[in-house]
Design a protein around this nucleic acid. Structure first.
Length: 102
DNA sequence: AGCATGACTGACC
DNA sequence: GGGTCAGCCATGC
């Protein structure tokens, strides 16, 4: 059921090149979910332990991180992104530079 | 079955 | 270009 959707989502996220990012809506569309962008976040929350899904490469449509600035999740994502060369300033990244365009 | 919730988005200002 | 508002949709209680 939703399992396959989740798998598909994870696969799409996995296909995002290192150093690039994508929006939830973009992932949703590529996974064939269309407008269920919100489902992406839900699916990423279901990530199994020991995964290697680069969930941190997924941001909002405006390039902003989906977590409140200062939260643990936020900091973690920020760190991960910067490790790949993606600068995060004021909780957002420059889409015109890092957004993934297939 | 109905209503609130959320890792969202597009339209507007 | 960034903040605000209303709409969408599956999930969970």
């Amino acid at each position: 059921m939703e399992e396959s959707k989740d798998q598909k989502i994870w696969q799409v996220v996995l296909s995002i090149p290192k150093g690039k990012v994508a929006s939830y809506g973009q992932v949703a569309k590529m996974a064939g979910l269309g407008r269920q962008a919100r489902y992406i976040g839900r699916a990423l929350g279901k990530l199994p332990a020991g995964h290697q899904i680069p969930w941190y490469r997924v941001l909002r449509s405006n390039g902003q991180i989906a977590f409140p600035e200062g939260s643990e999740q936020f900091e973690k994502q920020k760190t991960k992104l910067e490790q790949e060369g993606v600068k995060v300033e004021r909780g957002r990244v420059k889409l015109n530079v890092h957004q993934w365009r297939p």
